[in-house]
Design a protein around this nucleic acid. Structure first.
Length: 972
RNA sequence: GCGGGGGUGCCCGAGCUUGGUCAAAGGGGUCGGGCUUAGGACCCGAUGGCGUAGGCCUGCGUGGGUUCAAAUCCCACCCCCCGCACCA
């Protein structure tokens, strides 16, 4: 018997190790082709090997493993493979940062390595090796594999690979040729975040703090305002082109340097910073610098609004940031708080104006023009909020927040009120779109891209927005593709579990468009027709499940990368080409090619793919679409199942909080089976799972209790003997649980399945012990083998161990799922379960009486009362019932009692009536008699079981109130 | 904004798809009892209100509605969480 958690955990870990090595030695989970046997192919996306995985990942892989193990017990030939993803920029970026000596990264990785390596010297050596990204990836891939093995996952490791391997590159190359053939590849312009230091596009992974403070690209409309009496245009950037009609002046920062340049045959002015950005956004065009000027030189001049030729005075403003958009803005003080405040400030400060050579009277006459109606705002919106907030200076930081509030409110509620019929009456939202397009179309404006915040790369290089030309895309916006995807989802040819996520797939299909599929840096496969480009990491991971089916053959037969020419994959995956030609061309023997083809045809399609919710909008949708694009219908995905994320003690796990539990700790600090049971039980798939230490320990206590019970059962010698009433009840209940648990597992309701087979069975055993006494353990022994089989998918190690205690020399993990043993004695189940209700009734009454109690009479209703219930249930009329009762039970003269019973049943729920109908009074009496001792013990009173008729003879009060399943009670 | 999910008893959390068996599973906490030298663990009982006979009343975000009957269905409102891409 285990007493302490520590002792038990140590033991648990030791048997986990033992069984893992036994499974490994037996090659138990290596799935080989068995012609004729039903197969089940389940995959979970391979992990990205840039660091240790945590318990959130563990949830997903554990669920995959539970399904794999369950299907195996159901007699399927199951393939559950795994590989490692190293494509993309993060691994490279981390490796570069380590090379560069970035202390944060170095200490982070040092901690990661220490999870697996104790020797300090070794740790530094490994860290040093990470300067080569491949070493980093391979190190973690190997550790993740070890983590997975230590969690007992039933993976066929022969098929593993990583995405940086040449054989994988060849596979991806083939795939991209195919996509090209099918017309999914296009090329065009693309707007990206771009690092000026590295002179290349850099995404979230490379940008400082982008994970916590996301960087977004926003489109400004840069409006051309012609300087009066010149041929030069000011380019004023705005996010709200619809306010152009309310522009009353221009803002220039006098302290900033501007550039006058020639472009597209015209002359323009923008800030220095903006000029640089412009060149990156129009990379193939010619810009000629004419001169630089100070902002001050422009003050006091007039610019003409392009639509109405209104003269706008150029005024000074400090809030104008040269490094935001074009460094020039127009002023619409009615709606823009900054504009309003700056204007008021200027009016209050004529000296400053004079200093810049501007006549203050010119400014006094500038008034906001109201062009937007907002419910509840009479005057100028900007004025109102600025005054409410008491803001006086354009340098007040609160302006930022106020501005976004005003913008938001106007966007949703604002209506344009202007003379121009084209815009009058439009919502702000519509007007913005319309104005922008109009300005672009008529050549009055150009798009100018800017970031939502200032950003730098990890090496402190400035990030701007640039346009890449010649970007390669995968075009998912093809009707033939999308409609097929919709069709299989809607017709349930592709099943989504839990089904509530089905709609999300359909939604994604609606908005999914072109996706850039290659970048100029990172680890990965080169684009076969344009070797400057490397295929991006989600685009190379869409149909790799096909690769698992042949990966081990490639290794075993020593097939070299150069032999894996596209024709090989055409043959293996699509059955195209003549096998001997392919053999000649590739150098792979015909027999091997045929073997690969057989293997693929046997395992494909993927029966189930399981992963996390966040993959719906990208990977999973690509997975579906690529299969549709490249394979015949028979090979398309069948089931996609999903689970939510994991949090810890109510808080999100994150590196910055330092509350991430790595999988490594599961096997050193907890145990595999404990983890598996907890993580699979603590929440249903579609809800976020909260890892709570206290709960984990409680589950541990239960596993310990379970182990102790089973141990005792194994060690007790039991004789063959007949089943008494309680044992029959126990068996029936257990068989009901088998039935229900099986249904739950088939529906992927894993939490409920575990609730039944673990927690409910434990409770059942307790109850059985109470009823039956010490002898109960023999009943447990009887169901033990089936019980541990039911639990095997979740806690495979412990159940294998118990199975060995039972003297079995076979692996439980490849045995078979228990069948439900009939008959389940439903009447016994109802009657014994009903005892709890009787007990609580008795307790309630005793508590109310507040008197000492000697004896409780439990008075059982006669069979005729049940018969009435049955008749009511089958809809027989009262009259008929009375007649039947009279003849069958001799109840002449007791018609009132019959009517009473009839009325009672009429009011009852159908389910209750059915329970009554399924039992007999004789059985009810027997059961009550059998539990008499139990009741006496439990309630601490004398119990007397007595038939109603007899009780009436003995004039025991209340006897006539007896009903089936609700005996009358009289308390003395 | 668009799309998705959710608000349940002191707390966590089931149930709502297929309305009644739901005062509402299961934990936790709290209270009482057992066991114990004591504590822990474990076991038993109680834990919305009222009631001297198994009952009644109130109740599952707020306000309406449908129904003989609603935590469960419909409508409106309030609040919370997640995703919106080219990134794994």
């Amino acid at each position: 018997m285990f007493q302490s958690r520590d002792e038990f955990l140590r033991w648990l870990r030791s048997i986990e190790k033992k069984w893992q090595s036994k499974w490994r030695e037996a090659h138990l989970f290596e799935a080989n082709l068995k012609p004729g046997a039903p197969k089940f192919y389940i995959t979970v996306p391979y992990p990205y090997a840039n660091g240790p995985l945590h318990i959130g990942h563990g949830r997903t892989y554990t669920i995959g493993d539970i399904v794999a193990r369950y299907k195996r017990l159901r007699g399927f030939n199951v393939l559950y493979p795994m590989a490692f993803h190293i494509t993309g920029t993060p691994i490279m970026a981390f490796s570069e940062m380590i090379s560069r000596g970035d202390q944060k990264t170095i200490s982070m990785y040092r901690e990661y390595i220490k999870l697996y390596v104790e020797d300090e010297y070794k740790v530094e050596e490994i860290l040093e090796s990470f300067k080569n990204p491949l070493n980093l990836a391979v190190f973690f891939a190997e550790r993740i594999q070890r983590d997975f093995e230590e969690l007992g996952y039933s993976i066929d490791w022969r098929r593993k690979f990583h995405t940086g391997e040449p054989i994988y590159h060849n596979f991806v190359t083939w795939q991209f040729y195919k996509l090209m053939d099918k017309g999914l590849i296009t090329r065009g312009e693309h707007i990206v975040t771009y690092c000026l230091l590295h002179q290349q596009p850099e995404g979230e992974d490379d940008i400082l703090d982008a994970d916590v403070n996301p960087v977004e690209i926003v489109e400004f409309t840069a409006v051309k305002f012609k300087l009066e009496d010149s041929d030069v245009y000011l380019l004023a950037g705005t996010l709200r082109p619809e306010t152009l009609l309310g522009a009353v002046n221009m803002w220039i920062n006098p302290q900033v340097e501007y550039v006058v340049f020639k472009w597209r045959g015209d002359k323009y002015i923008v800030s220095n910073e903006a000029f640089l950005k412009l060149k990156y956004q129009y990379p193939e065009e010619e810009f000629i610098v004419i001169k630089t000027i100070s902002g001050r030189e422009l003050l006091g001049k007039y610019a003409l609004s392009p639509l109405n030729q209104k003269r706008l005075l150029i005024l000074p403003a400090q809030f104008v940031d040269p490094d935001n958009a074009t460094g020039i803005v127009y002023s619409e003080p009615s709606d823009a708080p900054y504009d309003y405040v700056a204007l008021v400030e200027l009016k209050r400060n004529p000296d400053l104006l004079k200093e810049y050579g501007i006549d203050p009277s010119q400014v006094t006459s500038i008034e906001p023009v109201k062009i937007i109606d907002i419910p509840g705002i009479k005057g100028h919106h900007a004025e109102e909020v600025v005054k409410n907030a008491g803001i006086e200076s354009q340098n007040d930081p609160r302006l930022e927040e106020i501005t976004s509030e005003v913008y938001k409110e106007q966007f949703y509620k604002g209506i344009i009120r202007v003379d121009d019929p084209e815009f009058n009456g439009l919502s702000v939202r519509d007007a913005r779109e319309k104005m922008k397009n109009k300005l672009y179309m008529q050549g009055y404006a150009i798009p100018f891209y800017e970031l939502n915040r200032k950003a730098w790369c990890r090496a402190k290089g400035k990030i701007i927005v640039a346009k890449i030309s010649g970007q390669w895309f995968i075009n998912y916006n093809l009707e033939w593709l999308k409609s097929k995807a919709r069709e299989i989802i809607l017709s349930n040819k592709l099943i989504v579990i839990p089904s509530k996520y089905t709609k999300q797939f359909l939604d994604v299909l609606d908005w999914l468009d072109k996706r850039p599929c290659a970048r100029k840096r990172g680890i990965g496969t080169k684009l076969p027709w344009d070797s400057e480009w490397i295929i991006e990491s989600l685009s190379d991971s869409t149909i790799y499940m096909a690769f698992y089916t042949i990966a081990h053959i490639i290794r075993e037969k020593g097939i070299q990368p150069n032999m894996l020419i596209p024709e090989v994959f055409d043959y293996v995956f699509l059955g195209q080409g003549d096998v001997s030609d392919v053999s000649t061309k590739s150098g792979i023997p015909v027999s091997v090619l045929e073997e690969m083809r057989r293997e693929f045809m046997y395992w494909y399609p993927v029966d189930q793919r399981h992963t996390g919710i966040p993959h719906i909008s990208n990977h999973l949708t690509f997975y579906i679409l690529h299969h549709i694009a490249l394979f015949p219908m028979e090979q398309w995905p069948r089931i996609i199942s999903l689970n939510e994320t994991v949090i810890r003690e109510g808080a999100k796990m994150s590196k910055s909080k330092g509350n991430v539990i790595p999988l490594r700790h599961v096997t050193t600090m907890y145990s595999a089976d404990l983890f598996r049971l907890y993580i699979a039980w603590a929440a249903e798939l579609d809800s976020v799972l909260d890892w709570r230490e206290a709960e984990v320990l409680r589950v541990l206590d239960n596993i310990m209790r379970f182990t102790n019970i089973t141990k005792q059962a194994v060690e007790t010698a039991c004789e063959e003997r007949g089943y008494d009433i309680f044992t029959r009840w126990f068996m029936s209940k257990f068989n009901e649980i088998i039935e229900k648990a099986t249904v739950m597992l088939e529906n992927m309701e894993i939490r409920k399945y575990i609730q039944y087979v673990f927690f409910d069975v434990l409770t059942l055993v307790d109850k059985y012990r109470e009823l039956k006494g010490l002898d109960y353990i023999c009943g447990v022994k009887e169901i033990l083998r089936e019980w541990i089989t039911l639990l095997n998918p979740v806690i495979p190690h412990l159940t294998e161990e118990i199975n060995s205690w039972l003297g079995s020399s076979e692996f439980l993990s490849v045995s078979s799922w228990p069948e439900v043993k009939k008959p389940i004695e439903e009447d016994l189940v109802i009657l014994v379960d009903n005892i709890d209700k009787v007990i609580s009734d008795i307790r309630e009454i005793i508590a109310l009486l507040k008197k000492p109690v000697n004896t409780v009479y439990i008075i059982i209703a006669p069979e005729w009362k049940r018969e009435i219930a049955r008749l009511v249930l089958s809809g027989v009329q009262l009259k008929m019932i009375i007649e039947a009762m009279k003849t069958k039970f001799g109840l002449k003269g007791r018609e009132i009692e019959i009517v009473d019973a009839f009325n009672t049943y009429k009011k009852m729920d159908k389910a209750d009536l059915e329970r009554i109908a399924k039992t007999t009074s004789k059985r009810e009496y027997e059961v009550m008699l059998a539990v008499t001792n139990y009741l006496q013990r439990k309630l601490g009173v004398n119990i007397s079981i007595i038939w109603e008729e007899e009780a009436r003879h003995r004039s025991i009060p209340r006897a006539e109130r007896a009903l089936p399943l609700k005996p009358a009670l009289y308390i003395e």
